[in-house]
């Protein structure tokens, strides 16, 4: 993967150029006394609103009850508040202060839902479930003869080309449908490391399928 985009790090405005509203947030949160307390309270209210909206936005795809969703929103807002205050010095005026703050709320919601998954996974963790893959990919069961060899080759490549770690993560995400963040929690790692492992696995698998003539073959087998 690329180390970074050109331009990353080149867009850091100085605080002097932060907009007036952002500057006011920094001044009050960095201050003391009643003014700071009021600012912290306002900040918390904003974080709670954003976290609540984010939880509701994701709710249709979650198996969580109303009180559990509220709980996630409140915890996310509380942790985001601590994080924003601890990292105040890291705000560089590259965006509005509120946008930077919203990010903490959204990422906290995301992290909490990743951990929540294992309380009621609803996913049997044994077995590999290759049978569900054709359906997930959109292969027509009636045309099994056409895709059977492709998926057999994919399964062979998973067994033969991937490292144990790559295989473990591929199986969890692709065959069992476990969210990547939940996989990261289970393996004691983070989203970035899981993505990197999957990235390398995807590259290897595609190369194996191309080499075997199953993908990227132009006319043959696609009609």
């Amino acid at each position: 993967m690329a180390a970074s985009d050109r331009g990353i790090g080149e867009n850091q405005a100085t605080l002097a150029s932060a907009d007036a509203e952002s500057a006011e947030w920094l001044r009050t949160l960095g201050g003391s006394g009643a003014e700071r307390e009021a600012a912290v309270e306002r900040l918390h209210a904003i974080l709670l609103r954003v976290a609540g909206n984010e939880v509701r936005r994701r709710a249709p795809r979650l198996r969580l009850s109303g009180p559990e969703l509220d709980d996630v929103a409140h915890q996310a807002a509380a942790d985001a508040l601590l994080a924003v205050i601890a990292k105040l010095g890291q705000f560089r005026g590259e965006s509005r202060f509120t946008t930077w703050v919203y990010k903490f709320a959204v990422l906290e919601v995301s992290a909490k839902l990743g951990r929540h998954f294992w309380r009621d996974p609803g996913v049997p963790l044994e077995g590999e479930d290759w049978e569900r893959l054709p359906g997930r990919l959109g292969f027509d069961p009636a045309e099994r003869s056409e895709w059977h060899d492709l998926l057999a080759a994919l399964r062979r490549a998973v067994d033969e080309e991937l490292t144990e770690r790559q295989r473990q993560i591929f199986v969890a995400i692709v065959l069992k449908g476990v969210p990547a963040d939940a996989v990261a929690v289970e393996l004691g790692t983070n989203r970035n490391a899981v993505y990197k492992t999957m990235f390398d696995a995807r590259r290897k698998l595609r190369a194996a399928l191309v080499a075997g003539g199953y993908l990227d073959i132009g006319i043959r087998g696609r009609s």
Partner: peptide
């Protein structure tokens, strides 16, 4: 190959 990954 341009993919920057999650952290970035």
């Amino acid at each position: 190959p341009r993919d920057v990954g999650c952290d970035k």
